[in-house]
């Protein structure tokens, strides 16, 4: 369990020319699969700035233990994607609950945007995050992490979340690298569209 017995060897170091760190935040309730998503696309094993919660179940963070959970010491965990020689993207998995609001300022300052990961069995867990993102004007997409066959159409989900049409809503399987990657691409596409739309009128 001990990390750091060889601090630099435990993960590949960045390229020497790495110059620009970028941030995307994956936010959602406990057990919705944030860590799973970060892990599936990260080039390093996700690191935590605090003690990681006990993991029940393999690969998916604690879906079965959600209700019995008492440990709340996790702050946020993060992964890394080297985009090219100069750009490095950091993914932060942040608990979406209100009690973690203190994290938000430092996480969301300068972030490109956010992915709200939702589980339709606990949709309410995402409300606070969506409200905060809307409040702060942070661009985001919503991704439904599918645990088994979906029971609702995306339109029903959009309706329940009261999401405006322009906010992308996608399905994903956070355990799959390609699926998680597609969510990130959807976010950046969304950002690109917003940015391009705004560009002519600075």
């Amino acid at each position: 369990m001990a990390y750091g017995n060889s601090d630099t060897a435990a993960r590949a170091p960045l390229r020497a020319g790495a110059r620009h760190g970028l941030k995307i935040v994956v936010v959602g309730g406990f057990g919705v699969g944030k860590t799973t998503m970060v892990r599936s696309v990260s080039e390093i094993r996700p690191l935590s700035t605090e003690e990681t919660m006990t993991t029940a179940g393999v690969g998916v963070d604690d879906t079965t233990a959600v209700r019995g959970k008492t440990t709340t010491t996790v702050a946020f965990d993060f992964g890394r994607i080297t985009l090219d020689d100069e750009f490095v993207l950091y993914l932060f998995g942040a608990p979406g609950q209100e009690r973690f609001w203190f994290l938000w300022d430092q996480l969301f300052a300068g972030t490109l945007g956010a992915v709200v990961l939702v589980d339709t069995r606990r949709l309410e867990d995402s409300w606070y995050a969506i409200d905060r993102l809307e409040h702060h004007g942070t661009p985001f997409v919503v991704a439904r992490n599918n645990f088994g066959a979906p029971r609702h159409t995306l339109d029903q989900l959009r309706d329940a979340l009261d999401l405006p049409r322009h906010v992308p809503l996608v399905d994903c399987d956070a355990r799959r690298r390609d699926s998680s990657k597609a969510v990130l691409v959807a976010l950046v596409d969304h950002l690109f569209a917003l940015s391009s739309a705004r560009e002519p009128t600075p």
Partner: peptide, 24 residues
């Protein structure tokens, strides 16, 4: 980090293109 934009501002399309390229 270069894009020290205010919360409201969006990253430039050029930057986003690089990000997309890297992600793909």
């Amino acid at each position: 980090p270069r894009p020290t934009h205010s919360p409201d501002a969006l990253p430039s399309p050029e930057l986003l293109k690089r990000v997309l390229l890297g992600l793909r």
